[in-house]
Design a protein around this nucleic acid. Structure first.
Lengths: 133, 133
DNA sequence: TTATATGCAAATGATTTGCGTAGTC
DNA sequence: GACTACGCAAATCATTTGCATATAA
């Protein structure tokens, strides 16, 4: 994914921002905003949910984290920003990383054939996780 | 995409349901629920938004239409249910069909490698449409 | 006839925003 | 000191739901 569309303005290193990022990078579970709020509150009980939302938005605009906008009602966040794919369990909604290498040539192909300037792609598998199957 | 998870119970052919489906199948623009509501209201001014939502949900549970849950805040709907990919304009949010053939082997591969039972996948390109580029 | 669907309005749930204060640069 | 970010609460937006009535089978 090209990075050229990311916001470039510097931003302040606040305690809240730091803790939110640390907590997100600790896990591989792709938590939603309020799950992150719960996690962060253990370390900063007075943080507000609005602050969590504002920071997640900012961090994803900067490309420091990923906002996953697939399926489900809630957005989910991913502290790992290398190009990779996801699997969503159609039963319990859990999201895992998919052990499938990124397809490297497809963006260029879509760029040529579509008339769009392509920056990247998202791919999500739909299935049943071992627990639900 | 396997169809085995779709709801099978028969359902009634109401005027509202028929018109909603017809209007959706007329266009290739992947409208949101309230865009469909607008379209349908030209033919049925007294239809309610709740009915539109209920029917879109039902039709997608049956596999008659597709609910697109990628990016953006609003869900979008697609009257064309063959496996195909989409392109989202990161500027204006418009969604187009991608002129890229479905990848046929990847689901099986993910199934083997992930431990999940895979039913299919969704792929969305991110880019700038000709108007916005 | 009898269950399903509709219209309407209120409820819900996720996310965003306004505002006055606090903290970073 | 100036400007960005925070906490709090209210607002917004998409979507869902309860209920009384209408309609399909």
């Amino acid at each position: 994914m090209l990075q050229s569309h990311l916001k470039k303005e510097p931003f302040r290193k606040t305690k809240q921002r730091t803790v939110i990022l640390e907590e997100l990078q600790k896990v591989d579970t792709h938590p939603s905003a309020d799950e992150i709020y719960m996690m962060v509150r253990k370390r900063m009980p007075r943080i507000s949910l609005g602050t969590v939302y504002r920071n997640l938005e900012l961090l994803s605009e900067k490309g420091i984290i990923l906002k996953l906008t697939f399926g489900g009602n809630q957005k989910r966040f991913d502290g790992y920003t290398e190009q990779h794919y996801h699997i969503r369990c159609m039963q319990c909604g859990k999201i895992a990383d998919a052990p499938i290498d990124p397809i490297t040539t497809i963006d260029e192909k879509a760029d040529k054939l579509s008339g769009y300037k392509i920056f990247g792609h998202n791919l999500e598998f739909i299935g049943l996780c071992p627990d639900c199957a």
